[in-house]
Design a protein around this nucleic acid. Structure first.
Length: 577
DNA sequence: GCCGTTTTCGGCCCGACTGTTTTCAGTCG
C-alpha cells in the first residue's frame, strides 16, 4: 500500500518526465493538479478508493483515478515505469538548475549528451555550452554560478523568519517619496508556513528611481534581474526578493494577482472569462464582440471580487480550496483574529526546559492582557527536556494554586504528558486527575509505522484524562517530517471522544497542518492554539498560530482559548473531571 | 488529462525578463 504523499510525488515526477518529452502542456498540468488535489485531500484515501469516489475530487478524472488506485493498491504503475525508462533519471535534476527548463535540458542532452549535474558542470567549464544554438556565454556563466551556489543555499524559509526580514523592507519602501502604496504579496501574505521568496508590490510615479533604490540597498547581495516593472534581488541572508511596480490605478489588481496563489488566480480568471471579463494584474476589461472596453476604476481587492458577485476572500484562504465557491455563496467565515485570544495553555517554565520561571511567565502573560495562562511542563519520560517527576509535578501544582489565588490572572495547572510508545500516558490517572487539563504529545519512538502510530495516538485520545492532543505530527518544518499517521482517523477519534486538537503556534511546527482544519472543524473538532512557549518572548507564538488558524478557515468559535475565563473553566471541568 | 449555464469536443491565464536574437523562444511566477 502506497502512501498518499508518495503517490503525489510520482504524479509530479510523471509531469516532469512528460515535460521533458515535450508533451502537451495541459496534460502535464493535469498531472500536477492531480498531485496537488491528492495532497490537499482531507478524507481517507483508502476509503475513497474502495468506494470508487476518487473522481469526485476536482482535478482527478477517470485516468488519474485509475493511476492513483493502481499505485495505492499495487505500489507500482507500468506507465510510470515506462516513462522512467524512456528518460535518463538524471535529467530531472538538471531541471532544478535555475534557468534550465525542459527545452534546454533536452537540447543539452541531445547535442552534448549531458545527463547529470557533473556532465553539465564539465561542459560549462569547457565552454561547450556557449556554442549551442539558443545558449551563449552569459547562459553558460549563469549555469556555472548556479551550480556553485546551489549547494550552499537552502532556499525556503519559515514564514515567521521571512516576515521578520520583509517588514523593514516594506516600511522603507513605504517611506520613499514616489511610492504611494506598498504591500507584501505572495505566499508571505497568504501565511503559507514556509516561503521561497519575498514579494513586494508598490505603486509609483517614478519606477526607475524606486528600482534604483531597491537594487542598491545594503541588504542586496546580488541583482538577479532589473527592469522598470519587475526586479529581483538576492538578499544578504540568501533569500530572493521581488519587487513589482505598477501605476497607482493598477495597485489593487497587481496586489491581488501577486498574492496568488497561482491556482486561485487561474480559477478566478476562468470565472471572470465566463462572465465576459478579462482580468489581469493590470486591470479588468469587458470583452465585447472582440473589442475590449476598459471599465471604471476598481481600487480595492473587495471591489475586484464584487464585480464577479463574490464576497471578500482574505489572502490566507486563496489556495484554491473552495474559497471561490464559498465567496459566491457568501459563506466565507468570519476568521479568528489575534485580538480574540484570551490566554494560552501550552507554556513551559524553567521547571523543565523553559527559560523563565513560573512567576515570570505569568507576569508576561498578564502584560499581554491575557485572562489566563496554563502551565504545561514536560512529563518524566521527556528526559531530554528535564521532564517532571511525580513529586516535582505535585509541588508545581501546589505552587500554581497559591500563585493563582494571589494573581489577577487565572493560572491553570496542566502538563504536556508524553504518550509512551504503546499509547499509555506517562503518569497514572490519580496524578493526572489533580491537574486542570492534560496535553498529550509524542516525543519518542518517531519511527513507528502509520498503523502503530495511529493506534498509539488513539489510545491516548481514549484515555479519560487526556484533554488536548499536542503538535499532532511532530513535524519540524524544513527539518523533519512528521511521523506517519492517519490524520483523518485521528480527527474522527478526537471528535468521538470529545478531545481538542492543538494548533501549535511555534513557527517551526504549525501543527496540526492548516490543510486539515477546515473539514475537521466543520465536523465539530475544537482547536486550542498553543504557543508552546519556552520563554516569555515566545508567548506571542500564539499569534503565529492565529495566522495559521485563519488559513485553516477557523473562526473564533472553533478555538477554545478565545473563551472568556469562566467559560473555559467550565469547559475544562467538564472535560477533565 | 480535466472539464462543462459557449457540455462530450475543444478549449485550458497571461505577462515580464533574459539572452540570444534582429523578432523571438524559453523560463518563471
Amino acid at each position: 500500500m502506497m502512501k498518499r504523499e508518495e503517490i503525489a510525488e510520482i504524479l509530479e515526477e510523471m509531469a516532469e518526465l512528460l515535460e521533458l518529452k515535450g508533451e502537451n502542456p495541459f496534460r502535464i498540468r493535469a498531472y500536477r493538479n492531480g498531485a496537488r488535489a491528492l495532497r490537499n485531500l482531507d478524507a481517507d484515501l483508502e476509503q475513497l478508493i474502495k468506494e470508487k469516489k476518487l473522481t469526485e475530487i476536482e482535478g482527478i478524472g477517470d485516468h488519474l483515478a485509475q493511476k492513483i488506485s493502481e499505485l495505492f493498491l499495487k505500489g507500482r504503475l507500468s506507465e510510470y515505469e515506462k516513462l522512467k525508462r524512456g528518460t535518463p533519471q538524471a535529467l530531472l535534476e538538471l531541471l532544478q538548475v535555475p534557468g534550465l527548463g525542459p527545452k534546454k535540458v533536452q537540447t543539452l542532452y541531445k547535442k552534448l549528451k549531458i545527463r547529470s549535474l557533473s556532465d553539465l558542470k564539465k561542459a560549462a567549464a569547457n565552454g561547450k555550452i556557449a556554442k549551442l544554438a539558443g545558449f551563449g556565454k552569459r547562459s553558460e556563466a549563469k549555469i556555472l554560478e548556479a551550480l556553485e551556489t546551489s549547494e550552499k543555499q537552502g532556499t525556503r524559509r519559515l514564514w515567521f523568519d521571512a516576515m521578520k526580514e520583509a517588514r523593514p523592507i516594506l516600511d522603507a519602501l513605504k517611506k520613499l517619496k514616489s511610492v504611494k502604496k506598498a504591500e507584501i504579496a505572495g505566499s508571505l501574505r497568504r501565511r503559507l508556513e514556509t516561503v521561497g521568496d519575498l514579494d513586494f508590490i508598490a505603486s509609483s510615479s517614478n519606477p526607475n528611481a524606486v528600482m534604483r533604490w531597491f537594487t542598491t540597498q545594503p541588504f542586496v547581495k546580488k541583482i538577479l534581474s532589473k527592469g522598470s516593472a519587475k526586479s529581483s534581488i538576492l538578499l544578504t541572508s540568501g533569500i530572493q526578493a521581488d519587487l513589482r511596480l505598477v501605476p497607482h490605478s493598477q495597485f489593487a489588481f497587481a496586489l491581488y494577482y501577486f498574492t496568488g496563489s497561482k491556482e486561485h488566480n487561474i480559477r478566478l480568471r476562468m470565472q471572470a472569462l465566463k462572465r465576459g471579463w478579462s482580468l489581469s494584474e493590470y486591470g479588468i476589461e469587458r470583452i465585447k464582440k472582440g473589442a475590449r472596453l476598459p471599465t471604471a476604476k476598481v481600487d480595492t481587492e473587495e471591489k475586484i471580487l464584487k464585480l464577479f458577485g463574490l464576497s471578500y476572500i482574505p489572502p490566507e484562504l486563496r489556495e484554491d480550496q473552495g474559497e471561490l465557491k464559498a465567496a459566491a455563496e457568501n459563506k466565507i467565515p468570519k476568521l479568528i483574529v489575534e485580538g480574540d485570544i484570551r490566554g494560552a495553555l501550552h507554556c513551559h517554565t524553567a521547571a523543565t526546559d523553559g527559560r523563565n520561571s513560573l512567576k515570570e511567565m505569568v507576569s508576561a502573560a498578564q502584560k499581554l492582557g491575557w485572562e489566563y495562562i496554563g502551565i504545561s511542563d514536560h512529563s518524566k519520560s521527556a528526559f531530554q527536556a528535564n521532564g517532571q517527576s511525580e513529586e516535582r509535578l505535585l509541588a508545581q501544582i501546589e505552587e500554581i494554586r497559591k500563585l493563582s489565588k494571589k494573581s489577577d490572572i487565572r493560572i491553570f495547572a496542566g502538563i504536556e504528558c508524553d504518550i509512551l510508545p504503546k499509547g499509555n500516558l506517562d503518569f497514572p490517572e490519580k496524578v493526572l486527575k489533580r491537574l486542570d487539563y492534560v496535553i498529550v504529545s509524542i516525543h519518542s519512538s518517531f519511527q513507528q509505522d502509520e498503523k502503530a502510530m495511529t493506534k498509539r495516538l488513539i489510545r491516548a485520545i481514549e484515555h479519560p484524562c487526556s484533554t488536548i492532543i499536542g503538535h499532532l505530527t511532530g513535524r519540524l518544518l524544513l527539518k523533519r517530517k512528521g511521523y506517519a499517521l492517519n490524520i483523518p482517523k485521528i480527527i474522527d477519534a478526537c471528535i468521538a471522544n470529545k478531545k481538542i486538537v492543538e494548533l501549535n503556534g511555534n513557527p517551526q511546527r504549525l501543527d496540526m497542518d492548516w490543510r486539515y482544519w477546515r473539514a475537521a472543524a466543520e465536523k465539530g473538532l475544537l482547536c486550542c492554539i498553543g504557543p508552546d512557549a519556552h520563554a516569555i518572548d515566545q508567548l506571542e507564538f500564539v499569534n503565529t498560530g492565529v495566522q495559521i488558524a485563519r488559513k485553516g478557515w477557523l473562526r473564533k468559535e472553533d478555538v477554545i482559548n478565545t473563551l472568556p475565563l469562566k467559560k473555559l473553566e467550565a469547559l475544562l471541568k467538564k472535560m477533565h473531571p
